[in-house]
């Protein structure tokens, strides 16, 4: 049968920053082709196709419901592949090769991780499951 794609509404203007992204305006409606867990979603809007940040979208049906998975306070072990320096108060800075616990996998690609007593958001694209090669 036909493939039905989820429709999302754009909640804020977004200007593309690299080649395969698309620029969208608030209230544009887009169909989602692929949801990557790094927070970039591939979507189509009229005749445009490209990647946009999941955080700029809300589902057309049920915009008040969170689609995020529940947090797992026991934590899941991951290793950092790439360094990231926090730019906002709720982020955490980590060096490559550090083992951390992921406690909340958010669809926007900024997972909540714990390192000792510190907790903060970190880009999921810089993480790999512990024990696997980056």
């Amino acid at each position: 049968g036909p493939i039905i794609l989820d429709t999302y509404r754009v909640i804020a203007d977004y200007s593309k920053t690299s080649k395969h992204e698309i620029t969208l305006r608030t209230d544009d409606l887009v169909e989602i082709v692929e949801k990557n867990q790094n927070g970039w979603w591939f979507c189509q809007c009229e005749n445009k196709r490209g990647w946009i940040p999941a955080s700029y979208l809300e589902p057309l049906d049920g915009p008040e419901e969170s689609e995020d998975a529940d947090p797992n306070y026991e934590g899941e072990l991951y290793t950092t592949c790439t360094a990231y320096k926090a730019e906002q108060d709720d982020e955490i800075s980590l060096e490559p090769g550090q083992t951390i616990e992921v406690i909340h996998k958010l669809l926007d690609g900024w997972w909540v991780v714990r390192k000792g007593d510190e907790t903060g958001h970190f880009p999921s694209m810089f993480l790999q499951k512990a024990g696997k090669e980056c």
């Binding site: 395969h20 940040p53 999941a54 955080s55 700029y56 906002q88 690609g109 900024w110």
Partner: peptide, 22 residues
């Protein structure tokens, strides 16, 4: 075929969205 996603982390949610989450 779908091109690879951008190699940089996506921007954080716009301010409007962050307020909603609090």
């Amino acid at each position: 075929s779908i091109k690879q996603p951008p190699q940089n982390p996506p921007p954080r949610p716009p301010a409007e969205m962050r307020r909603k989450r609090v």
